[in-house]
Design a protein around this nucleic acid. Structure first.
Lengths: 116, 116
DNA sequence: ACGATACATCGACGTTTGTCAATGTTCGTG
DNA sequence: CACGAACATTGACAAACGTCGATGTATCGT
């Protein structure tokens, strides 16, 4: 079950009622787990936070390597995981690649976890 | 960064504003990531759902091995991770160990992810 | 056209993870 | 007290993950 095969969060959340309302199917559980695993890393948590808090709510790779204390290839790697999972979007302008939050993506997984 | 060193979710959530409000600290990011990693597995997602949906909102190990299709030691292993992370509580009655959701635990991590 | 810059991809390495079989441990019952 | 049942713990192994250095690929400025 590699992290590479995953559905965008938006699709994952479209599927089902919150986790605790009724027993989730095996397939939906796998999709939700994959989305969660994309978030379940200190560097990626900080990346999302840094992008959201950055000016104009977007950031390029060069803005992110220093605060994370990680190499550029590693940061690109984490960003790719977040993009593939549907949490971030990438837009290239000139030499730079700008990342921003996908609206509603975090909220959709939050909604699945909510019990009330 | 093994999954063994972790704070209960409740403490994790007490720390800070939602992820996207301001840049999260390195330490808080590590704690949140650890909580998320406890959830980021298909078997554990199903475990939480099965426990919540079970009669009286509690279940013993013997109720859970069959629907998961996993061996008893593996199920116990996953349950321990969820208990250590603060998502489930364990109460032993006789030979049986009953697991139930910790109220508000899932909601606290959901709240950290919410952007609105 | 050339060099430099910003980023992505690749290959490799050590660490962590999920799973199981085997073994401990605790509790109830005959 | 011994036996069985329910669960936890241990040890082992393959698979996946995070990180890095090296290399590839556009794009801009001169």
């Amino acid at each position: 079950m590699p992290l590479t095969e995953l559905l965008p969060v938006t699709d994952v959340a479209a599927c089902c009622t919150p986790l605790t309302r009724e027993a989730i199917s095996t397939e939906n559980a796998a999709n939700l787990a994959a989305s969660l695993r994309a978030l379940a890393d200190p560097a990626r948590v900080r990346l999302i936070s840094l992008v959201a808090a950055h000016e104009d709510a977007e950031a390029c790779v060069c803005d992110l390597t220093a605060p994370l204390g990680l190499g550029q290839p590693t940061v690109s790697h984490h960003l790719k995981i977040l993009v593939d999972a549907g949490f971030l979007s990438r837009s290239k302008r000139g030499t730079w690649a700008y990342y921003r939050l996908v609206p509603g993506a975090l909220d959709s997984v939050a909604k699945l976890l909510t019990t009330v």
